[in-house]
Design a protein around this nucleic acid. Structure first.
Lengths: 222, 222
DNA sequence: CTCTATTTTTGAACATGTTCAACATTGCGA
DNA sequence: TCGCAATGTTGAACATGTTCAAAAATAGAG
């Protein structure tokens, strides 16, 4: 009974690298599994031995990126106290991590269908998603900010959603150096934080109450 | 030089109907062009003579639905004055129109990639989109509501985006009778209208100013 | 080392979206 | 009515994601 060998791992890595290369070269769609296999120096079938599908390769890429990103995120969170700085750093790091493969990220996040394997909302990406949300959980939990009880429990998931939207915008942002995304990020983050502060004003109760009710109904108690 | 004959139109319609049937039966993905052609009683190639691609069939479906929806929307807008009622009716009608093909709509809106033909943001869907936005333009323009100048010009597009999000949520809403979507619709529409009213308070300037700046930068002057 | 079970590798085969060249039908001017 | 150009129809052919049975390499027990 042979255990996963070093050689096997190397072959897998080689295929993954080859795939990323081909993806960068021709884009996710135009890239063919035959090209990828050829670039990795293996037969077509071998690619399928290591990865369930072309989609699965993209998932593996994201998972790897997430692994590499984690220590940096730990540092980010360790060195900042205010919620604004914490969020800014966490999201900024995601941008930086994926910058070299910005286009490829499109293949992963282009699908909204929760039944599609590559959707950010699918079961196949649940692990990835939970790990991602966890960083926002930490960003919120250990920060010195008073949260309205109506949104508090849902804030990490909402922030993840917000950041997901930003990433989507970024992936397809054709402005130089993705300046539009930078602007969107800057302004909206400010607005979000201001909205959280304003939620303490009794005056604005009529606005925040339905939001709280809605979140409770959609996400459940918890 | 023969002009498009009645017979030709009939064949096209037959293929479209057959396709919708197969889509409803097996879902967009599982449906094959060969099935569709067979169901329509034509050869595979004929389907491609009338529709550029499988995707194009979905576009044709949406376009037809839009045509059928237009008179109703006209009536909706003629018979309501307040912005809330106008928006509620317009969006409600879209839900009702697409209800029988809710799942199929997923095939159209699942993709966010602006380069994907079936994306609500693509060039291929620009006509459809513009017509859609136009209804929101009318809903806003002829209504008796004071709009903050900072968002006014962008409101139709923003509302279209909002409604797009609702439709997406709805398509994948697995709750009985899509009750969750109904709740989301009800609460968020109320919040939007309240937000528009609150925008007149000088007190909340710090919140609305960045929003206006952002919209101006992203959408341009206009 | 030898043998066997497991892991890895291979490429043919299959299904399906799409293209295309050939064929059939139709409309119309003469 | 005849001939021809435009329109409509056909199915074979192709590319590509995926499956699979068979072959090759490998590891470990004896």
């Amino acid at each position: 009974m042979a255990r996963p060998s070093v050689k096997s791992e190397a072959t897998r890595a080689r295929i993954l690298e080859a795939a990323l290369g081909v993806f960068r070269e021709s884009g996710f769609h135009a890239a063919t599994m035959r090209e990828i296999a050829a670039a990795a120096g293996v037969a077509l079938g071998a690619a399928y031995y290591y990865f369930d599908s072309k989609n699965a390769i993209v998932l593996a890429f994201y998972q790897k990126a997430q692994d590499e990103m984690a220590p940096g995120l730990d540092r980010d969170l360790a060195s900042a106290r205010t919620l604004e700085t914490r969020l800014r750093r966490v999201i900024q790091r995601k941008f930086e991590t994926f910058a070299p493969n910005r286009a490829l990220l499109g293949a992963l996040s282009t699908n909204i269908d929760p039944d599609h394997p590559l959707s950010p909302f699918s079961k196949a990406t649940a692990d990835i998603r939970d790990r991602d949300i966890d960083f926002f959980e930490r960003a919120v939990r250990e920060s010195a900010v008073r949260l309205p009880s109506s949104v508090g429990p849902y804030l990490p998931r909402l922030l993840w959603l917000y950041q997901m939207g930003l990433m989507l915008f970024w992936v397809y942002d054709k402005s130089p150096a993705q300046a539009r995304t930078a602007l969107l990020f800057d302004k909206t983050l400010g607005m979000i934080l201001l909205a959280l502060k304003l939620s303490e004003l009794p005056f604005l109760r009529p606005f925040y109450r339905p939001a709280g009710e809605l979140l409770k109904a959609l996400y459940g108690e918890a």
